[in-house]
């Protein structure tokens, strides 16, 4: 356990589903995605030297949850006003307060997202990164580590393709970038 403590550091974010729980850990040279199911854990390792891209996509889950909580709060509030029995009155007040609290928490936690990590062989989701702020923090944490493992990105690799290049959904590049890593230039490969 002491060795595990030195090796891994817990990253922000977690996700709990009905039968599983997701968490991200930072290792010395890789990212560890842990999925706990029942009495077992499953691991996926993404080595920094293999990570090609981190993709964060905003979702509407926060807005949907806001609407649900707001409707629940209104419904429970109306029931609170309609019922005079003190016991049920207190019950509905508690539920109304809970709905308002959840609405507030959901709104304050910020936009929701889904995050994917892309390697040469897969594009894998990271379920524990469900909030854009958390995903941003984790990405900011990982970026220098990945750059340390792979080297810095050259600005010319991100230059837009010339107008004469094939359309956006074509599968071949017209001029492959030159990778200056001490080896002879090579053509790009398809994923």
């Amino acid at each position: 356990m002491a060795r595990a403590q030195k090796m891994y550091r817990r990253l922000p974010g977690n996700a709990a589903a009905l039968a599983s729980y997701h968490r991200l850990w930072l290792g010395p040279d890789h990212l560890l995605a842990v999925r706990s199911v029942g009495f077992s854990e499953e691991y996926k390792r993404f080595y920094f030297s293999d990570i090609q891209a981190l993709i964060v996509q905003k979702t509407d889950r926060r807005e949907i949850l806001n609407v649900i909580c707001a409707l629940a709060a209104i419904l429970f509030g109306l029931l609170t006003l309609a019922i005079s029995n003190p016991v049920w009155h207190g019950f509905w007040i508690i539920l109304t307060a809970l709905a308002v609290f959840l609405l507030l928490v959901n709104w304050l936690r910020g936009p929701t997202c889904v995050c994917h990590v892309r390697t040469a062989v897969q594009t894998e989701p990271l379920p524990s990164l469900r909030r854009a702020r958390t995903a941003g923090r984790v990405t900011a944490l990982l970026k220098p580590l990945i750059e340390q493992a792979q080297g810095a990105l050259r600005p010319d690799w991100l230059q837009p393709r010339p107008p004469s290049a094939p359309a956006a959904n074509a599968t071949m590049l017209s001029t492959p970038p030159v990778i200056d890593d001490g080896q002879p230039p090579s053509t790009l490969r398809s994923p």
Binding site: Q52, V56, G136, E147, W157, I179, R189
Partner: peptide
């Protein structure tokens, strides 16, 4: 029109 933030790294451009 999905809102995206994409961070790419040199491994994307390297041949195995």
């Amino acid at each position: 029109q999905a809102l995206l933030r994409v961070e790419v790294f040199p491994a994307l451009f390297k041949e195995a």
